[in-house]
């Protein structure tokens, strides 16, 4: 465990230094969705993607690679290899297009909600969530202060709209423990909840809760209300989709212990499949990890692929 943990944190830190992302990936993938949308650069209010949806396609390619490298003598070379991984491993084009479509759908919803916002494009920093979740708290604090806070200060950001639970959790529950944040944080689901939405999908679904949204951020009812507003029927079972009982997709362990991450995903998929063949996720990490392990038992869709702003 020790040597792999060291190697992994080393990869994450080196990667953050070189391309400002926790994984070796071409940073241009983060901003591709915004082409031709004419979103202003910077501004009082910004959408903060933290490149989470955009990284998912690359994560799907990387995890099997990590599984191979882990536990082999290559571990000691992990830092070295990580720099080349970005050149060798390429995300799947269909996955990229899918992530970009989800991003555009979110933007459209925000516009319908009457919010005007900017975007930091290639200057947008990653939140540092992975460092914190791995337990590298000191490294997280250093990173967050240096990269996230300074960038937001430089752009004079006063209001941040988050679109994923990990980034939202970092900004509302973690960073304020260490820093005084000069900006307000809003989650896009709270905006989406108050606008007219329509279904993009016909049929019953089961919701796979994000652990963070459901149990740490009090949003268990928010995305349910959005599906209700769109008239999408979601099957519930108190022992599978309850606030206490809905469990992890395995995502947080995908880098540290890919095998365990997969086992956890499979247990979750098995339980969800008892309720519906269509699983709706509200987090890009859940989307990636469940999809990668679904093996045809269920289809996994992001909430933005199931409902859209009218």
């Amino acid at each position: 465990m020790e040597s792999w943990v060291r190697a992994l944190i080393d990869i994450v830190r080196r990667s953050l230094e070189t391309n400002s992302l926790p994984i070796p990936m071409d940073k241009s993938n983060c901003t591709e969705w915004a082409r031709e949308l004419n979103i202003p650069r910077g501004g009082d209010t910004i959408i903060y993607t933290s490149c989470m949806y955009q990284m998912a396609p690359m994560i799907n390619q990387l995890v099997p690679w990590i599984e191979k490298v882990r536990g082999t003598p290559l571990t000691s070379l992990a830092g070295f290899l990580s720099r080349f991984a970005g050149l060798v491993i390429k995300p799947n084009r269909a996955d990229i297009d899918r992530a970009n479509n989800i991003m555009r759908s979110i933007v459209k919803a925000l516009q319908r909600a009457g919010v005007s916002f900017g975007y930091l494009y290639e200057d947008e920093p990653y939140s540092g969530a992975l460092l914190y979740e791995l337990g590298a708290v000191d490294q997280f604090r250093e990173y967050f202060e240096e990269r996230v806070l300074k960038t937001f200060e430089k752009y004079g950001v006063r209001r941040v709209i988050t679109i994923d639970p990990h980034t939202h959790y970092v900004l509302t529950n973690v960073a304020p423990k260490y820093f005084k944040l000069g900006f307000e944080v809003i989650n896009y689901l709270d905006l989406l909840r108050n606008i007219r939405v329509k279904p993009k999908f016909s049929g019953e679904v089961v919701i796979h809760d994000s652990c963070l949204y459901a149990r740490y951020l009090g949003k268990y009812d928010v995305y349910r209300a959005i599906l209700d507003n769109a008239g999408v029927r979601h099957v519930e079972d108190p022992l599978i989709t309850g606030k206490d009982t809905s469990t992890c997709c395995g995502g947080p362990l995908e880098s540290l212990s890919p095998g365990l991450s997969r086992d956890i995903a499979k247990i979750r998929i098995q339980n969800l499949a008892r309720l519906s063949r269509t699983v709706v996720t509200v987090c890009p990490i859940c989307l990636a990890n469940l999809s990668r392990n679904a093996e045809g038992a269920v289809q996994v869709l992001d909430i933005n692929e199931v409902v859209e702003a009218e």
Partner: peptide
């Protein structure tokens, strides 16, 4: 072992004493 925690948070919800187990485990990780 702490490193294998996914911070899913179910433990805290069901604990009769309301122990913030994910917080304790994260502290051990760090």
């Amino acid at each position: 072992a702490a490193m294998l925690c996914t911070h899913s948070g179910n433990c805290k919800e069901v604990c009769p004493m309301g122990i913030d187990l994910p917080k304790l485990i994260l502290h051990i990780k760090s």
